[in-house]
Write a protein that binds this DNA or RNA. Structure first.
Lengths: 352, 352
DNA sequence: TTGATTTATTGGAACGTTCCATTTAATAAG
DNA sequence: CTTATTAAATGGAACGTTCCAATAAATCAA
């Protein structure tokens, strides 16, 4: 209401009877000022209701402490987890990261990136939107802003990447299905404009071939990466001449959709059709039946991404090594007769 | 890599053979400059790889276009939905909101608010963390920054609030349970340091009294507002001498927990124990059994909050009217014999 | 042709900080 | 008692914009 003109360090200086420079020093916690003076100044800061103007400071300092995270879908708990992991690290480093959502929209992403750059971010952690064009991050590179990709990568980009081991995860899951005796397999959901898709599909294919199944017999159906997509995939597959008996799904959301569609047709997930998900979101454990899924530790990947970012900023580089995170197949009850229910298979999925 | 010193409007001016003022005018899209000149300048902007420095600009303009949203729990899809609703509105207004997560931690919230203020935000939409002290927003008020509370309110605060009609929602849900013939009711989850809790509990109590049930017979168990809390509540209640036969849950997460715990005891949610949730998150519809819940349209509330914020900024005020959003009871199958499955009861819950 | 008006462009001060170079005050060394 | 040394505080320039007042160029009226 009252809102008198914003207080500046000059107001503080007058109030405390010192110079603006002294105030500045106190604000930065410099040891050069006499403790009593510092106390006096700090009191004045309180009294005048001062708010530090970081914009003005950055004008001189030329390096802010703001880090942005650009997330492609905030409503997916999987990405929200990623964000939370990053925050944990930044918090302990005294950094407040700003999150922006692109809602899987490359145009929006462009706006978001522009805005963050204008704000003078020190670095950016990005899970790029589907359909991102290769040039979208050129401006960032030119400006020399450190960028890390998390969970997703772009084809032919030099930007460091933190992702789970998608290939291995898909391999483990597929081997598990084959080990259960399934011979007609399907891969449901996702689309080929995502690098992740190719990685996971690659693991699926390799497992098929290694374990004696002709990959050309496998059914591959692209689709949306959500429940609806999963339902559609299942319907399509059951309309085939020789329908599959098991499916590896692009992610858990797709798997939930598949199970939903099975129920709707009077089929029991697990007994009548085996389903494996990917990501192992919290819901997977509580679903009916509990979903077998590839756990990727998204919060851990978020932490790792944050650490890499901090390193990059400190060493003033825009390059860093990629990091491929370990995955586990978490076996639950969505793949038929529960021989080893609720056991955690760590790095072994029956690839014998 | 190369990263030559950041280009400024002076560099553009030199490149285009005009003055810095002209460049500034072009950047602001002023109609005062000759179109050909504008084209020339815009080309120079591209050529030098210029990045607008909003911090410097704000130094003069004294009003940024940055809006912050402070969310208490980003992993709850309910709050993520709220964020998405807000973003929709801001996007069409050309504003990029920055989201920050407080993880339900008042200390973290303090840091976040401080950081956002230092960044010079034009306004703040906040879903306050549980346990927020009344003074937490004093600095914002002093600085005259517009603030809107969303989903949650603080006791005795003058800050405008956008919330669902918690009292009515709880009333409708409770009346529904009573209409089904239940007489021993429970209210599960939440805690009394949340204003929302009192609102929902108030609706519950009013329904009991109005519809002929002594509210003192009702069982009220506080607890965490997540699955775990729900499980604990159910266990506690079943240990009572005369256990309840139905429960209104503080939110859907609690309701999911209750259903989980029922199953674990071999009881069937719906048939053996009626459960109603609150919020109607997307999972509610797909759960087994589908959860009857109070829909609050969180995305819509987010949009509303964003609109109010934009109005406040334009009219340079820090006051605005509260907004209480309508709620619907969405009846599904978690409350016993499904007399009217999948019907949407709009504003009427059987309060006759 | 001259002056008035409109249209485009420009220089300079200001915004709130940081940081360097300086000054002043206090202390130590000779 | 000087003079060198250290500690504490300060003034001024700079950061990259915006915006006002001023100028220059073009158009119009008389």
């Amino acid at each position: 209401m009252a809102s008198r003109a914003k207080a500046t360090i000059f107001d503080i200086a007058r109030e405390a009877g010192v110079s603006k420079s002294t105030v500045s020093l106190v604000l930065q916690g410099s040891g050069l000022i006499r403790p009593e003076t510092a106390v006096k100044v700090r009191k004045a800061i309180e009294d005048v209701g001062y708010v530090y103007n970081r914009g003005a400071a950055n004008l001189r300092k030329a390096h802010s402490n703001v880090i942005g995270m650009v997330i492609n879908d905030l409503t997916n708990p999987f990405f929200a987890e990623l964000a939370v992991g990053m925050e944990r690290v930044f918090q302990s480093a005294g950094i407040v990261p700003f999150i922006a959502n692109t809602a899987e929209n490359p145009v929006r992403q462009e706006e978001v990136l522009k805005s963050l750059m204008e704000q003078g971010v020190a670095g950016l952690i990005v899970s790029p939107a589907r359909g991102t064009t290769p040039g979208a991050f050129r401006r960032l590179e030119i400006a020399g802003v450190p960028v890390v990709f998390a969970m997703r990568r772009l084809p032919e980009s030099r930007i460091p990447v933190i992702t789970p081991d998608n290939h291995r995860g898909a391999y483990l899951a597929t081997a598990h299905l084959i080990g259960k005796g399934h011979r007609r397999l399907a891969f449901f959901g996702g689309s080929s404009d995502l690098v992740v898709y190719h990685e996971r599909l690659g693991g699926f294919r390799e497992a098929c071939e290694t374990l004696g199944i002709d990959a050309r017999d496998a059914l591959i159906i692209e689709g949306e990466t959500n429940r609806k997509g999963g339902m559609a995939c299942l319907e399509t597959s059951l309309a085939m001449a020789e329908p599959p008996t098991a499916a590896l799904c692009f992610n858990d959301a797709v798997a939930f959709g598949v199970m939903l569609a099975l129920r709707k047709r009077g089929l029991e997930p697990g007994a009548d059709f085996a389903v494996v998900g990917f990501d192992d979101v919290v819901e997977a454990e509580h679903y009916m039946p509990p979903l077998t899924s590839v756990a990727v530790d998204s919060a851990g990947l978020g932490e790792r991404a944050a650490h890499v970012m901090i390193k990059m900023i400190q060493s003033r580089t825009t390059r860093a090594e990629d990091h491929i995170g370990a995955v586990n197949l978490v076996v639950r009850e969505s793949c038929g007769p529960d021989r080893r229910t609720r056991a955690r298979a760590m790095g072994t999925g029956g690839a014998a």
